[in-house]
């Protein structure tokens, strides 16, 4: 498989983000939570008392570079776990609907239509507001609001695959429904699901940042790009770096995920995944 140069660059950038997230404790020059009133809102490149603050400091005198690095960790962790939750829930429902058809399929696919008629960000806002913020709630809410797209794709694909002769053969050989779905159907519909997963991963990153920006995601003092920017919004006239740097990281990360996703979609059968 030939990977174009542009996609190599995208993958390298994505790799750097993952490395930054994993190695944040080693890479961060300072403790992301340590405050210092003398160091409030220092611009990027400030050197004070023998310490240099490459990206400046925030309104409580915390080092922005350290917070942005730790923020990458939060962003990727939330998005990864939430994507896995929604993938498992959505795919299971889609497989079940596509395999058993009939009333089961009608009920499941009607729920998909209903879920898709509530804008996901609003449903997430309402649910987090009811349950309270925090890492676990955030992951659960994002995971459980974003499953319908997987169900749609898994359902359509399962319907197609289930009609193929090798599935009939597996059934006649005495495989249980579970075994047929797990061993024979799922591997054959993995490509389109992977494409949906990449697109959803980008969205999840944006959702986490958006909810944290609104004060409903990761709670201060823990560093998240969204919450750093939310604090930075208040100081936009005096400290541009508080919003520009975390936002740029967020934008580049999502852009790379989307580019990788678009490329992947063109590689996998392009007709199988709509929009």
């Amino acid at each position: 498989m030939r990977i174009p140069f542009l996609i190599w660059c995208v993958l390298v950038v994505l790799g750097l983000f993952v490395l930054a997230a994993i190695l944040a404790p080693q890479l961060a020059p300072f403790d992301p939570l340590r405050q210092s009133l003398l160091l409030r809102l220092k611009p990027p490149g400030t050197i004070m008392g023998g310490r240099s603050f490459l990206l400046g400091t925030d309104d409580l005198g915390r080092d922005l570079l350290s917070r942005v690095l730790w923020g990458a960790r939060v962003s990727l962790a939330v998005a990864a776990v939430a994507v896995v939750v929604s993938l498992v829930v959505g795919t299971t429902l889609g497989l079940v609907a596509g395999w058993f058809k009939g009333t089961t399929a009608i009920v499941i696919m009607r729920s998909v239509d209903t879920m898709l008629s509530i804008p996901a960000i609003l449903l997430a806002v309402l649910t987090v507001a009811v349950l309270g913020p925090g890492f676990l709630n955030l992951v659960v809410v994002l995971g459980l609001t974003r499953w319908p797209r997987y169900t749609r794709v898994a359902y359509g694909q399962t319907l197609q695959v289930a009609a193929l002769p090798y599935i009939r053969a597996a059934e006649m050989a005495g495989c249980s429904s579970f075994r047929v779905l797990w061993r024979h159907v799922l591997p054959n519909i993995a490509g389109p699901l992977l494409v949906v997963m990449t697109a959803e991963f980008g969205l999840m990153i944006l959702f986490e940042a958006g909810l944290s920006f609104l004060g409903l995601g990761i709670q201060p003092p823990a560093p998240s790009w969204g919450s750093i920017m939310s604090a930075g919004r208040a100081y936009v006239e005096r400290a541009w770096w508080l919003t520009v740097f975390p936002g740029a990281c967020l934008f580049v990360l999502v852009l790379c995920v989307n580019m990788a996703g678009d490329w992947l979609r063109d590689r996998v059968d392009p007709r199988s995944v709509s929009r």
Binding site: G202, L206, A209, G210, F213, G226, M229, G232, R233, V236, E237, W240, T243, V244, G247, A248, L250, F251, V254, L255, V257, N258, M259, D262
Partner: peptide
């Protein structure tokens, strides 16, 4: 277009404020 699709609205909003407002 691809960039527009990946743009977090709260970031582009703040950038607009920085440029045209501040």
């Amino acid at each position: 277009v691809l960039a527009g699709q990946s743009l977090p609205t709260f970031w582009s909003g703040i950038l607009l404020i920085l440029l045209f407002g501040v």
